[in-house]
Amino acid sequence: MESDSDFYGDENTISSLEARVKDFDVIAWWDCRTSALDHFQLASHKPPSPPIPAGCPHDDPEEGQLGAKRLSESVEEFLGRLPPATTNWRPGLDWIRISNPYAPPQPDQALARFRKGAEERLALFAELKRMATAASAKAANRSLMTLRRDISEERRETIADLLELAGACNVVAGKWMLFPGPEHVNEVWTKVATATANGELGITAKVETRVRADKERLVCIYTRDFRDKDDVRRVLNRMRELELVRPGGRQIYYKPDAWTELGIYGGNGWGIAASMYSSNEIFGYTKTVPSRFS
């Protein structure tokens, strides 16, 4: 790259980019982003989470929702009342869900502030990407490889900012996702629901109700904090013990709730991966640092 102008284009392009950056609502975004920066940095390097302690179960925060387990019923009664293979979708019954009664409640989330700041950051990246691509088309000395490299770097910085903002706003839960077929969904959900109720998996779990008889069902198994890779690994290992996943088998993926809130799915226009971890990656992570889990 000869100079900055080779990347951003002529003076009109540079002026337009500078105006876009100037209009970015940095005060509101950084206010949320930095208010818990010290907490985020500490949480990023915290030791592995201890096992969920035994004690008196607390109330289910989902109690009262149509598809939630009732406090008055056993897990067996809950499974019998709402078997996912035959429980049809209807308004208010998109999901069947159960919470870990031993997991402490999640901290309050600043969802509106997260969405606002994150959407502005994504819009800024999209504009940078558009302007860089447009400028490249006019610059004969700018190679496609260089353009891709610079856009990839901008994307990495955007992802880092979004994750940091999610931490500052407590939008830190995430979920492992299973997709059993309709013939297996009851068996899979029984294992997941029972283990969740016993405090063996994550903070909560849910399964889609039936929309079509032949459709795979999404089962989500939530962990408290996507930054706590050791806890993410612990839940995956328990899923392996329950024969819900196995090393070398069909991969499953872990997605942060922050990405769901922003509508980041496969094939999105930002080119951001829809998931954070894969099961094969986490199984590999376990093998490379065995001393941490002994």
Score class of each variant (00 low, 15 high):
Phe293Asn: 09
Ile252Asn: 00
Phe179Trp: 14
His39Ala: 15
Asp59Val: 09
Pro107Phe: 00
Val21Met: 13
Ile221Cys: 02
Arg70Ile: 02
Ser99Gln: 13
Thr288Ser: 14
Lys215Thr: 05
Trp95Gln: 01
Ala112Val: 13
Ala54Trp: 12
Glu63Tyr: 10
Arg238Leu: 07
Val235Thr: 03
Val289Glu: 09
Ala139Thr: 15
Asp94Thr: 08
Lys69Val: 02
Arg70Val: 05
Asn268Lys: 03
Glu187Trp: 09
Met131Cys: 08
Ala135Arg: 04
Gly202Gln: 00
Ser294Glu: 14
His184Ser: 07
Ser279Met: 01
Ile151Lys: 12
Glu120Cys: 04
Ala213Pro: 01
Ile27Gln: 12
Arg97His: 11
Glu18Phe: 10
Leu17Gln: 13
Asp4Lys: 13
Leu147Phe: 11
Pro53Gly: 08
Thr288Gln: 10
Lys116Ala: 15
Val211Gly: 02
Glu157Phe: 05
Cys220Gly: 03
Thr209Arg: 02
Pro91Arg: 01
Asp31Cys: 06
Ala135Thr: 03
Glu76Tyr: 05
Gly80Trp: 04
Arg250Ile: 03
Gly64Ala: 07
Ala68Pro: 05
Glu216Arg: 14
Tyr222Asn: 06
Ala273His: 06
Arg240Lys: 07
Phe40Ile: 09
His58Thr: 09
Gly202Leu: 01
Pro180Glu: 11
Asn268Gly: 00
Glu183Gln: 12
Thr223Asp: 07
Pro53Cys: 08
Ser44Met: 15
Glu243Asn: 08
Met1Val: 11
Glu216Ala: 15
Ile252Gly: 01
Thr260Gln: 03
Phe114Asn: 05
Asp161Pro: 04
Thr146Pro: 01
Asp4Asn: 11
Thr209Cys: 05
Gly266Ile: 04
Arg212Asn: 04
Ile27Thr: 12
Thr158Met: 15
Gly64Gln: 01
Ser152Gln: 05
Ala28Trp: 10
Thr146Ile: 05
Val207Asp: 01
Arg97Pro: 05
Leu147Pro: 04
Glu241Thr: 06
Phe7Trp: 15
Met276Gly: 02
His184Ile: 05
Phe226Glu: 00
Leu165Lys: 08
Ala126Pro: 07
Ala195Asp: 11
Val207Trp: 03
Glu183Val: 08
Asp257Leu: 02
Arg90Glu: 08
Leu42Thr: 15
Asp23Arg: 13
Asn170Val: 02
Ser143Ala: 02
Gly199His: 00
Cys220Arg: 10
Gly92Thr: 05
